[in-house]
Computed example of a mutant assay.
Amino acid sequence: MNKLQQNWPPALLMGTTGLPLDLPGLSEVDERPSAFVAPDHIGYRALLGAAMRAGPDCRDLGWGETGGALRLLHREGLKQMPLRLARGADPRAGWGLVDAITPLALDVLTVLIDRLQARNVEAVLIGASEILSAKRRHYCGGELLAVQAQVGREILALGQLELGDSGPPALRVTELPGSERFVVALDPDLRAAWREAASHRIDGRILAFDNRANRGADLLAKKIGLYFSAAGASVRPVRRPVRSILHAIGGDAQLKGRAGRLADRFEEALLRLSERRVFAIRRCGADAPPLEDRNKGWIKAWLKTEVVVAPLGPGGDGASVSNGAGQGLSRR
């Protein structure tokens, strides 16, 4: 066994040369799925939250250094799940890695978890082409090369994330030299736990939203869509205040001096999710202040506003949202 093979799951250690794609436990990623699945498990939501709160603002979004290790604490009510970079990583290099994670990691994570969860396989063989195909976006020339390279960096970064204070990386990533492809395996204990968990559906149109930082409303729509999908909004109504949504998707940092722009983009993101018929979305109650009336204290009132996100009704009219109660979304 060589150094490269030490991180491979047992299924890949069968055979001698090349990658036998028909081995049990190894799956290639399908192209252009219309929907994805993810486990209803705090470990998955912790990984999703870590990716959402990474990037240049990570220090303001919960990432910190404890005992020489970078750490993030994911909370769900009374439950919590610590998450950190792989042990032994230099803190300075670790900060550089977390700073460099982009929203593209959300798409990468969604595709990876879907293939590991939906097929209950031990490992997947994946590359940039499969991720970009799942996103239903097309790139050309230099932009394509740049995005392909970024996908590789995101896969390697996700492979550095450990759940718990002493666990191994959640995703074991092995880069295949010269192929620009990766073997990604799920930690066996995590795989066993996720196998027993229910699954949530993620609409494929969520991944089609633009992940670039200068596409503010699209990027927020992607994050909000993934957040509510992980909360189970594809099968039942989920109600959250705006403040909680922003905290979960890493929007807190933009409240400092940029609250007005953030509010506009947030509302536009909800509209895009509604207009593309990903979810039925309503305001809870009729006391939400109109964003045009930005008098003193409007930010606090807006952050307290509750949003109900639910699957579309049988007729696609959003009838599943609490008997239609609440204030609908519309363009003025």
Rank of each mutant, 00 (worst) to 15 (best):
P24D: 06
L26N: 06
S27D: 07
E28Y: 05
E28I: 05
V29N: 02
P33A: 10
S34L: 11
A35K: 08
V37K: 01
A38H: 01
P39T: 02
P39D: 02
H41P: 02
H41Q: 04
I42K: 00
I42N: 03
I42T: 02
G43N: 00
R45M: 01
A46N: 01
G49E: 02
A50T: 12
A50S: 14
A50F: 06
A51K: 01
R53F: 08
R53L: 07
A54F: 08
A54N: 07
A54S: 15
A54E: 06
G55F: 03
P56T: 10
P56Q: 12
R59S: 09
L61D: 09
G62Q: 11
G62F: 06
G62E: 10
G64D: 12
E65S: 12
E65Q: 14
T66E: 14
G67K: 12
A69M: 09
L70P: 13
R71V: 14
L73N: 12
L73S: 13
L73R: 13
H74P: 00
E76C: 03
E76M: 07
K79T: 12
Q80P: 08
M81K: 11
M81C: 14
P82H: 05
L83M: 08
L83G: 01
R84W: 11
R87E: 15
G88E: 04
G88D: 07
G88M: 07
A89L: 12
P91V: 10
P91I: 05
R92T: 11
A93N: 15
A93H: 14
W95C: 11
G96R: 15
G96T: 12
L97Q: 15
A100G: 14
I101C: 05
I101G: 02
I101W: 02
T102H: 11
L104Q: 05
A105T: 04
A105E: 03
D107Y: 00
D107G: 05
V108G: 05
D114H: 12
D114R: 02
D114L: 04
D114C: 08
A118D: 08
R119C: 02
N120F: 00
